[in-house]
Simulated scan of single mutants.
Amino acid sequence: MRLNRSDLNLLYSTRYSKEITDAYEWLLLDAIRGERRLFIRSDELDAAWSIFTPLLKELEAKKIAPELYLYGSRGFVGAHYLAANYNVRWGDLASDD
């Protein structure tokens, strides 16, 4: 990691040569304005980790690897079987039947 000395200049368009996309501009502006609905609170983060940590430890202990799939595909094959268990077709949003 390298630190970069920078003057406090919140006009990103003048400070940085690369253009920041609108989405990042809005996110930064919302953060500066104190818009809290877009960000997770620390107690929510603690609750999320308390739920997922045991699951992650079990996956690691049982050496369960994620099922891989091709980029751009409709997802992994197991998703089709999981959806079929609940009488749902996986990933077929174009069909009306």
Rank of each mutant, 00 (worst) to 15 (best):
K18T: 07
A31H: 09
L70V: 13
R41V: 01
S6Q: 15
A84E: 09
S6C: 13
I51W: 04
D96E: 10
D7E: 15
V77I: 07
A94Q: 06
L29C: 08
L70T: 13
K57Q: 15
D96R: 11
E58P: 00
D92P: 00
E35R: 09
G72M: 04
R74W: 05
P54Y: 03
I32Y: 14
R41H: 13
E60T: 12
G75V: 02
G78W: 00
S42V: 08
N4M: 13
I20A: 08
L38D: 02
T14Q: 14
K18Q: 06
R5P: 03
L68G: 03
Y71I: 13
G91H: 03
L29D: 11
I51Y: 08
G78A: 07
P66Y: 06
S17L: 07
N85G: 05
W90G: 07
A83S: 10
N4Y: 12
G72K: 06
R36Q: 08
L10T: 10
T53G: 01
R33M: 11
S95N: 12
E35M: 08
L55A: 07
A84M: 05
L28G: 12
L93G: 01
A94P: 02
E58C: 05
I32P: 01
F39M: 00
R89K: 11
Y16D: 12
E67Y: 07
S73M: 06
L27K: 12
Y71T: 14
G78Q: 07
R37I: 04
N85C: 09
A94S: 11
P66F: 01
R5T: 09
G34Q: 02
L45G: 04
Y12G: 14
D43R: 05
A65Q: 10
R36T: 08
R74G: 14
L38E: 03
S95W: 07
R36P: 00
R33S: 08
R36M: 09
A94F: 02
E44V: 01
S42Q: 12
D92C: 06
L59P: 01
R2H: 08
S95F: 01
N87Y: 05
S73V: 07
Y81V: 11
A61C: 05
V77F: 10
